[in-house]
Amino acid sequence: MQRIIRFRNHSIFLILGGVFVGIVLFCALISIIYLPDDPMATNSMTKLAAPSADHLFGCDHEGRDVLSRVILGSRPTVIISLLGILIALLLGMLLGSAAGYFGGAPDHFLMLISDSIMAFPGILLALVFVAVIGKGLPGLIFGLGIVFAPSYARIFRTGIRQLKDREYILLARLIGVKPPRILFVHLFPGLVPQLAPAIVVGIANMAMAEAGLSYLGQGVQIPQPSLGNMLMEGQSYLVYAPWIIIFPSIYLLFYVLGMYFLSEGVRMKFKTGGV
C-alpha cells in the first residue's frame, strides 16, 4: 500500500478511514430511530424490483426494501465487531500480561493455550464456539472474541517482556510500585503504539468473520438481516437481481477498508510521533 501511494502524511488515511467508517457507524446508529421502510415486511408486488425512486437499493426476493435491510444489517456487524474486539482485548490482556510479566511456567502454559487456539482455522473454531455458546449475538461476540484473543495476548506478552526489564521499570519496583500498577500504569502506555493499529485492524477482521459466519448461516439468524446473511440469501438471484448482493458488499467494504485506512493512519502517526 505504502509503496504504491506513498503518502507522507498520516492524516489522509485517518480522514479517508474516518469517512468510510463514519458512514457505516452513522447508519447503524440511525437505524435505531429511523428506517426508510420496514425491513421485514414482505411484498409480492416488489419481488426482485430494481433500484428506483421508491426503493433506492431495489428489493429482494421477498420484496423487502434492500436499503432498510442494509441499514439495519450493519447494526450487528458494528456491535459484534466492537464488542468482540473488547472481549478479545480483555482476554488477551489478561493472558498476555500474566505470561509476559511472570514468565516461566505460567508463560509456557498460557502460551500453549494461545498457540493451540491459533493452530485452528479461525472460522472453524468460531463455528465450534458458536455451536457451544449458541447462535445469536452473545454467541458470536464471545466466540469471535475467544478466537481473536491470542493475537492480542501475543502483543501484550512480547511488549511486556521487552519492557519489563527496562531500567525505568526496575526503578518503579524499587520505589515500591506493586505489580498491577506497574502493568497498568507504567507498562501499558508503552504498548499503545503496537496495540492501537492492531485493534483497528482487528475490528475489520472481526467484521469480516462475522459476515462469514452469517453467510454460513451460523451467525445472525434469518429473517433478522445482517450483511452476511443478505449475501447468502441474495446469491441465488445474483444474475437477475445483483443489487441484493452488491449493496451489502459495498457496505462491508466501506467498513473494512475504512478500518484498514484508520489503522494505517494510526500506525504512521505513532511512527512519526516518535516518543
Partner: peptide, 8 residues
C-alpha cells in the same frame, strides 16, 4: 535514556 518512563 532508559531509566525514565518515556510516557510520563
Amino acid at each position: 535514556y532508559n531509566s525514565l518512563n518515556p510516557y510520563k
